[in-house]
């Protein structure tokens, strides 16, 4: 027990307290550390980059939510039945989850860059004359990262649905069938209500992870955050202030608190849903 308690204190409790303390200082990687009151929070309110990042996150979330709540459910239904070879398909569908976001994003950036597969093929077809700037235009960058996130997340949420589908009671389906409900009707009236809690759980998970996005945008923009740094996420800003010449632990901590404030609601909901499911 002792080691875990130590870890809890050193790597969780203390950093949480320290984050709050630091947010009121001008601590930097080298020097600083003077108490500066609410300066960092005043800066938060007028930070154009943060406003950009929050808008990116909201768009990210709004697009990911429906896609990653529904597509993995359909996928889970597809792989639920144990037909020959299904273990292979389930494992294969999970592969993008197992791969590092860095690996996936590097593959994506190779496919989407000006001379990459997508632009090359589209030009060969004659659909476009000039390459589409997937990786060098703000919203195209954000949407490229979204498509990557959806593609990588399908298998993850599929597994969660898969274990939920196992609990949908067979008798209900049978009773409905006896009562003459057609398959569509039963999908709507039995399957969907049976996994409704899981759908809620998944959608909250999707929302939280959209707010926490980092690697996808970082790699696709090659660390730049797109033109003018306008395609950044909140976590990218935190990372940016974590080191180097522009490093500012105090401001990064204030940004961390912003991140906490926007994620704590969904996180609490997630915890409740999880305990209900258990």
């Amino acid at each position: 027990m002792a080691p875990a308690a130590l870890w809890l204190l050193v790597f969780n409790v203390w950093p949480s307290i320290n984050t709050i303390v630091l947010a009121f200082t001008n601590s930097r990687p080298l020097g600083g550390g003077r108490f500066t009151g609410l300066d960092n929070f005043a800066r938060v309110l007028s930070d154009a980059q943060l406003a950009d990042a929050l808008l990116n996150s909201i768009v990210f979330m709004l697009v990911c939510l429906p896609l990653l709540t529904i597509l993995p459910l359909l996928l889970a239904i597809l792989v639920e039945k144990k037909i020959p070879g299904i273990a292979f398909f389930r494992t294969a569908f999970y592969t993008p989850v197992v791969a590092s976001a860095v690996v996936v994003a590097l593959i994506w950036s190779w496919a989407l860059n000006d001379r990459g597969l997508v632009n090359g093929f589209a030009q060969w077809l004659g659909v476009i004359a000039e390459p589409i700037p997937f990786l060098t235009e703000r919203w195209l960058l954000v949407f490229s990262a979204i498509s990557l996130t959806v593609w990588k997340g399908l298998g993850y949420y599929m597994i969660i649905y898969l274990s939920a589908l196992g609990n949908v009671r067979r008798e209900l389906h049978e009773a409905a069938a006896v009562d003459g409900a057609g398959p569509v009707r039963r999908f709507r009236s039995v399957t969907i209500p049976g996994v409704r809690n899981t759908m809620l759980l998944v959608s909250v998970m999707v929302a939280v992870s959209a707010l926490r996005v980092f690697s996808e945008l970082f790699i696709l923009s090659n660390g730049t955050g797109g033109p003018g740094g306008r395609a950044q996420s909140v976590v990218m800003l935190i990372q940016m202030y974590s080191r180097g010449f522009y490093g500012h632990f105090g401001y990064a901590s204030a940004l961390s608190i912003v991140l906490f404030v926007i994620t704590v609601g969904p996180m609490l909901l997630l915890l409740r849903l999880n305990r209900k499911a258990a």
Binding site: L8, S16, T19, Y241
Partner: peptide, 17 residues
């Protein structure tokens, strides 16, 4: 309580630790 705390929130302080 740590479950409601995304790792990224404390990452700066964790680095300082």
């Amino acid at each position: 309580a740590t479950l409601v705390l995304p790792g990224e929130v404390t990452i700066i302080s964790q680095y300082i630790t």
